[in-house]
Design a protein around this nucleic acid. Structure first.
Lengths: 205, 205
DNA sequence: TCTTGCCTAGGACGGTTGCCCTAGAAAAAA
DNA sequence: TTTTTTCTAGGGCAACCGTCCTAGGCAAGA
């Protein structure tokens, strides 16, 4: 196995473990056993734990960028794109129920550990915020209103994730998704309010 | 200083530290230096770290119960009581900005540390949930709708806390508070919609 | 006064943490 | 093939973790 593959494996394992057990509670040894590598050898690939964290955040940033780009390719209607964002809460409901939102829980944890790496993790939120704001702007909202709408949607997703995790309740997620989709209408300028959802599986023959 | 006073001091210091730095990242030594006690002596008051956590959660439960009781005494109108809940987000905005929601962040962290003490922390959320649901029921909502409204409000508070913490944005908190108070109207049965907020400082001569 | 029992200080325990070194295996280059 | 580079295993470092023990200070009761 090449070095870059090993490195990627380490990052993937760390990513998973940071999500499931948190950053502070995940040790070098945990990651090492997860990828079946000796602890000492670790230092060849990563000089410190912070470096692994930085790599994990970097891959999450890249993954998020790709996902957002995919959503832009999948639909031209900004409203449909925004619904792609809402739908990840549904798609990941099982994991959210068990571990919460990966972005939110990591950022919250890092904010408590001093401000070293927390700044980088926040950039994932920036990505979503800017992207959502752009979609709302494309729907006709002014810049500040579009940003407020983006923040509102982000806050909604975080609140749903926290509570679904606390109460282990998937039905709650579904209820909140229905509710936010209805509310989405009232966030738009009057001309864009359709009152109905886009056709499902638009690419199906 | 009596033993119970020392114990209370330890719990108060641990409470604060768990909030600011998280449970996993707070050590016995941290708490000991905070209350100016020797680390070894600690064991006289608390046999283990879990025991301190349990004590912290117990005091938080008691404090929450007292706060909810105060809100019930302060107002008879359930709508005003619900606004008391919304207002804590405003009142604690400075600390929320720095450390997030104390209940939400602790529960999320404990959920990742295995399920030993996480169950107890969740009971704080249960307290809010039941209390809010009772207020909504008093406003005329059916039991299931009242519970859904309570969960919705809780999720709102958690989402606001996470994002205010991530972006260090107090203005966002104020905006969301205004928004939820407006939305509160649409959550009520038609007869109770007033469209205006209750008079401020109702007890002032 | 002396005893009794609550409370404290300080140290020490085994284990784990993040971090680092070195000898050698494996692979690539010559 | 030989040489050089890349990667790995395993052990060891000091520091810290949660936990535990013991000797003694202290105040109240006898």
């Amino acid at each position: 196995m090449s070095a870059s593959e090993t490195r990627a494996g380490i990052v993937a394992a760390a990513d998973e473990l940071f999500y499931r057990q948190g950053y502070a509670h995940t040790s070098f040894a945990d990651i090492a056993t997860a990828v079946d590598l000796s602890r000492g050898n670790f230092y060849y690939h990563f000089r410190s734990k912070d470096e692994i964290l930085a790599a994990v955040i970097a891959t999450r940033l890249k993954r998020t960028e790709m996902m957002l780009a995919d959503w832009e390719k999948a639909a031209v209607d900004p409203l449909v794109r925004i619904r792609c964002f809402i739908d990840i809460v549904i798609r990941n409901r099982a994991e959210i129920k068990r571990f919460g939102c990966p972005v939110g829980s990591l950022t919250t944890e890092l904010a408590k550990l001093g401000q070293q790496g927390g700044g980088e993790a926040r950039r994932i939120f920036d990505l979503f915020r800017c992207w959502l704001a752009r979609q709302f702007a494309a729907l006709g909202l002014a810049a500040s209103a579009a940003d407020a709408a983006a923040l509102h949607l982000l806050a909604w997703s975080q609140g749903v994730a926290v509570l679904a995790n606390v109460f282990h309740d998937e039905a709650f997620i579904r209820r909140e998704v229905r509710e936010i989709e209805a509310r989405l209408q009232s966030m738009l300028p009057p001309g864009r309010r359709t009152g109905r959802r886009a056709r499902r599986n638009p690419g199906r023959p």
